[in-house]
Every structure is written in C-alpha cells, then in structure tokens.
C-alpha cells in the first residue's frame, strides 16, 4: 500500500512532467539540498520529497519501458513479503521446537541419572 503511494505520486509526476514548472523547481532544490544547499524548515522537506518522487518516476519510466519490451519489471520480481514472513515464522517455530526437544532430552537424562 505504502509503496503504491510513492508510485502514485511518481505516476502523477510522470503525467505532469511537462506542465508543472513549480514541481520541477522543487525537485531541483531537493536534488541540490545537501548540507549546504538546504535552507531548512518544512519547505526543505517538501523539496526533498519531490526529489525522491522524481527518482521514483525515473524507476517507473524504466519499468514501463521494460514491460513494453516484454521483460519482467523490478517491482514484480520481488518475493511476496507476507509469504517470506510466514516462512520465517515457520522457521522460528522449528527453532523453538528444536530447543524444547533438547530441553526435554536433558530432563529425561537427569531423571535417568537420578534413578
């Protein structure tokens, strides 16, 4: 959802590329806004954000061109995070079971030694 927001703005910026001079100026200021170039304050953040959305727009352009060539685009090649998270949770559960099994073995060994 959140990545889509960036893509949404990128798409918006792509379609308004020619029209919006104000936005272009913000992108320029954001690009130059290193330690020296930034004036500071809330406007500086908006400039920085505009520069980042412009970067995303370039990614979107590349993806669209790649898709037109029939290639797989970067955003589609990423593994599904929900699936990855599930795999991790299963792995973690297995780790806990390994740990509990070992603990049980220790208890049995102790009980046997006490007989």
């Amino acid at each position: 959802m959140t990545d889509d927001v960036m893509r949404f703005f990128a798409a918006w910026m792509l379609t308004h590329e020619v029209a919006d001079e104000g936005l272009k100026a913000a992108v320029l200021r954001g690009d130059e806004g290193g330690a020296d170039g930034m004036s500071g304050g809330p406007d500086a953040f908006v400039d920085g954000l505009a520069a980042m959305v412009a970067e995303e727009k370039e990614n979107l352009k590349r993806d669209l061109e790649a898709r037109a060539r029939g290639e797989k685009v970067s955003i589609e090649a990423e593994p599904d995070p929900a699936f990855e998270e599930l795999r991790f949770e299963v792995g973690e559960l297995r780790g806990r079971l390994d740990n509990i099994e070992s603990l049980l073995e220790t208890l049995v060994r102790r009980a046997d030694a006490g007989k």
């Binding site: 959140t2 889509d4 927001v5 960036m6 954000l49 980042m52």
Partner: peptide
C-alpha cells in the same frame, strides 16, 4: 521515503 509513504 518513510514520511512520504506515510502520506498514504
């Protein structure tokens, strides 16, 4: 980026 994404 994080604050930008949070806008959504």
């Amino acid at each position: 980026r994080i604050l930008g994404q949070a806008m959504g």
